[in-house]
């Protein structure tokens, strides 16, 4: 672990750079000299619109990337991510149910969160049940299961959307567009309350994920109480994916590109991979969102569009390179 501190420092620097630079870039040009004046447009834009948005992107990107790393370790597959496993769809479905039945109305925004977390957890339970029923479930089976769960969730969402009132159906459409927005600081505080403890627990138990990534019997032979570790992992993964989805809506492929690239660069040790993925994943999403809110201004491109455009080809590239490796 000689490279631990340099790599971690670099990752911190990348996240910090995103935090400082991304708020300065946007559709409205900024005169940096006016940034310090408290009542200038520049300082309002910076503090009220850009900074919260970049912080949300950092948190969301970090949470999705580290959830991706976790799922890849637990499922022992580099293609497992919150969205390929259907966990994000489950969270989305939960949120749509909440909007549909009015649990998300006015003062009861908490309903959407709870429903989203439950949706993510439920799907993960299904995936876990599938993957532990047989002795060895191939990644093929796992991805097929994810696709199936995805389409089932989408079907139920479309059904709910078609039977609900026009207003709610519009709310659902808007929510499904997904993306990072200039949220209020209270929203950020709520998200921090979920994401940061989850990320700390995740990183703290890194050595467990190392052992579990090799295999369950390996992990228990090396002294790990695999059942409680797995339970913890699934709970933390659902919290990360569910709480982020509750705010941003579905963002595809955010948990794939950064973990995979980093694993190739710095190796699979989760003690370094997890914190680095959290930081770089956040910086990556913040950068994607900066592009999204700038190129078609004043309209905004949801960040999910950009991550999908980048992540889709990346996913296919992993698939093909893996196929050639097997031959």
């Amino acid at each position: 672990m000689i490279r631990f501190w340099p790599v971690l420092l670099l990752s911190c620097a990348a996240a910090l750079l995103a935090l400082i630079l991304c708020p300065l870039i946007g559709p409205t040009p900024m005169d940096l000299s006016k940034l310090a004046e408290p009542e200038s447009l520049e300082s309002r834009l910076f503090w009220l619109a850009r900074l919260p948005r970049v912080i949300l992107a950092l948190l969301a990107g970090g949470a999705l990337a580290s959830a991706g790393v976790l799922f890849q370790a637990l499922m022992r597959d580099a293609l497992a991510t919150p969205d390929t496993l259907g966990v994000s769809s489950g969270a989305s479905l939960g949120a749509v149910v909440a909007i549909c039945f009015g649990w998300a109305d006015s003062a009861r925004l908490g309903g959407l969160w709870v429903a989203s977390l439950l949706g993510a957890g439920l799907v993960l339970l299904i995936v876990v049940a599938l993957s532990s029923s047989g002795r060895n479930v191939s990644s093929f089976t796992l991805l097929l299961a994810g696709i199936t769960i995805n389409s089932m969730c989408v079907a139920v969402m479309l059904f709910l959307q078609s039977v609900t009132s026009l207003g709610r159906s519009l709310a659902i459409t808007r929510w499904l567009m997904g993306g990072v927005d200039s949220v209020e600081y209270s929203t950020l505080a709520l998200l921090c309350l979920f994401v940061l403890p989850a990320a700390v627990v995740l990183i703290w138990r890194s050595k467990d994920w190392n052992l579990l990534a090799v295999g369950q019997s390996w992990a228990s032979a090396k002294g790990l109480d695999t059942r409680s570790s797995l339970r913890l992992g699934y709970a933390v993964g659902s919290i990360l994916a569910g709480s982020v989805t509750a705010i941003t809506g579905p963002i595809g492929f955010a948990g794939l590109i950064v973990p995979h690239t980093l694993r190739m660069l710095i190796g699979p040790d989760h003690r370094l991979l997890l914190p680095a993925s959290f930081l770089i994943g956040g910086a990556f999403l913040a950068a994607c969102d900066t592009i999204g809110r700038t190129i078609f201004a004043p309209a905004e491109l949801p960040v999910g569009v950009i991550t999908a455009l980048l992540g889709g080809p990346f996913f296919l590239w992993i698939l093909t390179s893996r196929a050639t490796m097997k031959n």
């Binding site: 946007g26 409205t28 200039s182 905004e300 949801p302």
Partner: peptide
């Protein structure tokens, strides 16, 4: 889809 940024600006 717009954000508070455009409203402020």
């Amino acid at each position: 889809k717009v954000s508070i940024e455009q409203l402020l600006a």
